[in-house]
Write a protein that binds this DNA or RNA. Structure first.
Lengths: 334, 334
DNA sequence: CTGAAAGCGCTAACAA
DNA sequence: TTGTTAGCGCTTTCAG
């Protein structure tokens, strides 16, 4: 910076003012131009580290997700980055693998890197770390899932509407005994979708036999397979399954293969999320499509707003979903 | 830090020495313990920004990929992070969308954030930006693909072996006219796999009709579909396809659907990469499985080595691949 | 509108 | 072994 100052024949402080768009109007237009040209021709690049030290603004945020290899998250992350980047922010991405110790230490490491905010995709309904963060006044937003009783900005899909679409679709095909493979009830998505399911079947006069609902121990395929096996072994009758997400639905596909069950002829399935390549499956999975990219973008926007204006009140954004096409549903066997 | 110094009754410099594991042995054990306790009880966390300013070491690296939503990359990124994290490093991830302007500006922004190195997954065979970076002495490693004629550490899958496995498998099933949907010949993966294909068919006395090989304009499904349509329309006879990667193979599936071609009965297909959920496709895609997670981990290791010891010479690591199971291949129609 | 001066929190010679 | 001193590159009062 000193070199630029010398080249432009001004004091470094003036260079600083001229180079920063926020303060550029504090300086004579002509001088500013001279400084800009000098900087340009010297190929000068500001050191954001030094600036951070002075301003304690790092232009970074932490992104906390369970596992990047879950196809749910890449589009969310891209949505986030698409908003951060033009704002001059960058994100540090960490994967917790749903391990709360790991999560805690990763969040600490993000904080020690002085991130200006946190985007959290790992929220559990009851989540001590989240409560601590919120209470400590950390700037944060929750994405996809939420923690109960916390006044934190949130961006989630319209779980209730999605489940209702799935149930309605199956009801219209003639199904009356529909099962639900719910995600873990420790997550808001697991609980809300299960509740919405209960509401939707009751509202339509379909069977609300509690044996038709099983909570899976995780959001992964094997947990879905396990739950479906138990359901089948329990002898409960059903002709369709609403899965809490697409991976649970894929777990169902595995069990269909094992047991020679034909989908959709014997059992119809609807998934949730609309992950990529669903149309290449056998059969193509009918799924509730969630705008993940937009979820990420809205979350990043909310966080940047909060950073720019800390005493903004927490908003909750609910994004609309739609029922995607597929071939995994059909009328029940006569 | 001053507070800790006061609490421990020492000079800030001593605190610095005591808190840094690298310099801890420069200080009396007893004093060190006293400092540690003081720091602990004050809940002191050192500011890495300030440290960076002094040492010009940020503990960050840039990760440059084309597109996180391509299922190839999440496991690579996780492999990278798994090595960076225990080393106290963090990664900034950017997506170029294969746009060279975007790539250039993203790399500049990474550099202005003072990353200590770059992990590049966007390399083209002829890639001016990469040459500039390498020549400017930037610390970098290339993953998955490489740029020609650059002395840069590289981690790639064994493309030749993978293609050979695919061709051998098809040859053993009895195919003699095998087509290859190659990736763009601007990429090392596209070119090397195409060359290996040519070698493999010749070696086995199979048809090396040049009409059987088509380069796709991108690594995506639609490009694969387009190339296969052209191939079919050209009237060239073939009974099997080796696709340059799994997405190109999925493009073939689309065309099979459009034209009522049955796979594997009419045409066999082998993909490359072994992306997730291949076994759920119809038919399950037989593919060359690449250890992506390990590719990422090795790349990060190479980069950290280079950072720790800058005058290390560039190594190229080639990782072994294997032919995954699947149902998309069968003997040719009699 | 611009310059001078101080300092963000830490580290690394150098001295003692 | 520890303290002293200077300074990393920038921003921001405060004067002028």
């Amino acid at each position: 910076m000193r070199q630029v100052a010398d080249a432009a024949g001004v004091h470094p402080a003036t260079v600083s003012r001229a180079l920063n768009p926020e303060t550029r109007d504090l300086v004579n237009k002509t001088t500013a131009r001279r400084v800009l040209r000098a900087a340009e021709s010297l190929g000068y690049r500001m050191n954001p580290i030094a600036r951070s030290l002075k301003t304690s603004k790092t232009g970074t945020v932490g992104i906390v997700i369970p596992d990047l290899t879950n196809p749910l998250f890449p589009p969310i992350v891209r949505g986030i980055e698409e908003v951060l980047e033009p704002a001059g922010f960058s994100g540090f991405l960490v994967n917790t693998d749903n391990d709360s110790h790991r999560e805690r230490s990763l969040v600490e490491s993000l904080q020690s890197r002085q991130v200006e905010g946190l985007i959290i995709a790992t929220a559990l309904l009851d989540h001590p770390l989240m409560s601590e963060l919120a209470l400590s006044g950390a700037r944060m937003v929750m994405v996809n899932r939420r923690t109960e009783g916390l006044d934190v900005p949130t961006v989630v899909p319209d779980d209730a509407a999605g489940i209702d679409m799935a149930v309605r679709h199956l009801a219209e095909l003639g199904h009356t005994r529909i099962a639900h493979l719910a995600g873990p009830s420790t997550t808001s998505t697991g609980l809300v979708r299960a509740r919405s399911f209960a509401g939707a079947v009751r509202e339509r006069g379909l069977s609300d036999d509690p044996a038709l609902v099983r909570h899976c121990r995780a959001w992964y395929e094997d947990a879905g397979a396990e739950a479906l096996r138990e359901l089948l072994d329990s002898g409960t009758e059903f002709t369709a399954v609403v899965a809490g997400n697409d991976l649970l639905a894929l777990g169902c596909y595995d069990v269909f293969g094992e047991r020679g069950i034909s989908c959709p002829d014997d059992i119809s399935v609807v998934g949730f999320n609309g992950m990529p390549f669903l149309n290449k499956l056998a059969p193509p999975l009918t799924s509730v499509v969630v705008p993940h990219h937009r979820i990420g973008a809205e979350a990043a926007t909310l966080l940047l707003d909060k950073i720019a204006n800390p005493d903004l009140l927490a908003r909750a954004i609910v994004l609309p979903v739609s029922l995607g096409p597929g071939g995994s549903t059909a009328p029940p066997r006569a």
